[in-house]
């Protein structure tokens, strides 16, 4: 058979999105997004070592509306990757494979990571005053 025409197993366009598959790909996307965030973390740490003026400039960038928006995104990315990562560690240890359990643990990950992101940023913005 022509290799180009051989039958394919069902794939992304065929399957209806489910919480299991969606959280799986979001885990990857959040991980890659956090990789981009590590560039900002590196820049910030280098600015501390470079002295007060480079540091103030970095703080100015990070504290700008665009910087705050990115930080909120990275906060959610980190919290999601953290919570879903713990879910993965439970699977690695052999627990939580029942289908109903994977749905419950998936929703717990979503609710906890969203709630923590909102909680952290509300408390930071209230404590420090909006920039």
């Amino acid at each position: 058979m022509d290799p180009a025409n051989r039958p394919l197993s069902p794939h992304l366009q065929i399957y209806r999105p489910q919480i299991t598959s969606v959280l799986s790909i979001v885990h990857r996307i959040s991980g890659a997004g956090l990789g981009l965030g590590s560039l900002v973390l590196a820049y910030w740490l280098i600015s501390v070592a470079a002295g007060p003026e480079p540091f103030d400039f970095a703080q100015h960038l990070v504290g700008s509306p665009g910087g705050i928006l990115l930080l909120i995104g990275w906060t959610f990315g980190l919290l999601f990757h953290f919570c879903n990562g713990i879910r993965h560690l439970f699977w690695d240890a052999g627990y939580g494979y029942e289908l109903s359990t994977t749905y419950v643990s998936g929703w717990v990950v979503i609710v906890v990571s969203v709630a923590l992101t909102v909680g952290i940023w509300l408390s930071v913005l209230i404590a420090k005053g909006t920039p």
Binding site: P52, D56, Q59, G63, V124, A127, K128
Partner: peptide, 10 residues
């Protein structure tokens, strides 16, 4: 980092 938010260089 949350506790340090808005800190100066010192």
């Amino acid at each position: 980092i949350i506790l340090l938010a808005g800190s100066d260089h010192a």
